[in-house]
């Protein structure tokens, strides 16, 4: 049985035979191995493309989809499949998008139970860092003229998509508090693709998907240390585009992650 058949039998999809595929396969064997969740989503694919330039990238999702990167379907249950998923991984980018069309129950379950299972398995496997992609919608309850930084208290609503992200942060925070994982939370604005929103009136929360990928790369490389705005094991950053009328300041991400937003709607 060759490697391709072996991996496919294990639920890992490898597609085609292009130079890009070879690059992806080669990069997956590099030392800096990154696991990205919600691999079915466009955002995860964009992040994988960005990180795959100089890192070994693997994707996982609830449902297998074709990808130029190794892809392992996994339900993130409390089982050996989740344990095996994180073996040899240096850092996890937990995109944490519930399945499309998920109801309130599934959204909360995905962001709490599956996040807990993933983090628990990561700890046991010696994963060093977990990036949790959250949402700036947790902070929109403040007056719009406030400059709301990462030090402000989240104000989640009871809307399941927002509440679930808050609970996901809540779950990850305990792993950081116990010093079991380094956790970096990136609170994202509304993720858009520049070409898709061209000509539209700007939403003050927009962030371009490639900006997110760049922030993720910066968060993977960032040195964490005791800091006036957070201890080394737990950091939170606002991540959105920066333009006249944009809602949240991103100075901390620029300073600590080398974030360089460029999208000007």
């Amino acid at each position: 049985m060759n490697r391709r058949h072996f991996l496919q039998g294990a639920g890992i999809l490898l597609t085609g035979g292009s130079s890009l595929d070879r690059e992806a396969q080669a990069s997956s064997q590099n030392e800096r191995r990154i696991l990205i969740t919600s691999g079915e989503t466009e955002l995860a694919q964009v992040i994988a493309d960005h990180l795959g330039r100089d890192r070994g990238v693997r994707l996982t999702g609830l449902t297998a989809v074709p990808s130029r990167f190794p892809f392992t379907a996994c339900q993130l249950d409390h089982d050996s499949a989740t344990d095996e998923l994180v073996q040899g991984v240096e850092a996890i980018v937990h995109v944490a998008d519930p399945p499309a069309g998920a109801g309130e129950r599934e959204q909360i379950d995905h962001l709490t139970r599956r996040t807990y299972n993933l983090a628990r398995a990561a700890v046991d496997a010696g994963v060093e860092r977990l990036l949790f992609l959250s949402t700036l919608e947790l902070m929109t309850g403040y007056d719009e003229d406030f400059l709301v930084s990462e030090r402000w208290r989240p104000l989640p609503t009871t809307q399941p998509s927002v509440l679930a992200r808050h609970l996901g942060e809540y779950t990850c925070r305990e792993f950081a508090r116990e010093q079991k994982l380094q956790v970096i939370v990136l609170r994202l604005g509304k993720v858009v693709k520049a070409a898709a929103v061209k000509g539209q009136a700007a939403d003050p929360l927009w962030v371009e998907e490639r900006e997110v990928a760049q922030a993720v790369a910066g968060a993977l490389d960032a040195k964490l240390s005791d800091h006036a705005q957070g201890v080394g094991r737990w950091r939170v950053f606002n991540v959105q585009s920066e333009f006249p009328g944009s809602r949240f300041p991103v100075a901390n991400a620029k300073g600590a992650l080398g974030y360089r937003p460029w999208f000007k709607p």
Binding site: L155, T157, T158, H166, L167, Y170, E174, K180
Partner: peptide, 26 residues
């Protein structure tokens, strides 16, 4: 709240946080 990662503690704490958030909006 500092519930820890103990399953019982954290899941109950998540439940309490859900209650708190609802009480803020309703």
């Amino acid at each position: 709240p500092h519930p820890s990662t103990i399953l019982y503690a954290l899941t109950k704490s998540l439940g309490q946080e859900i209650c708190r958030v609802f009480s803020q909006h309703h």
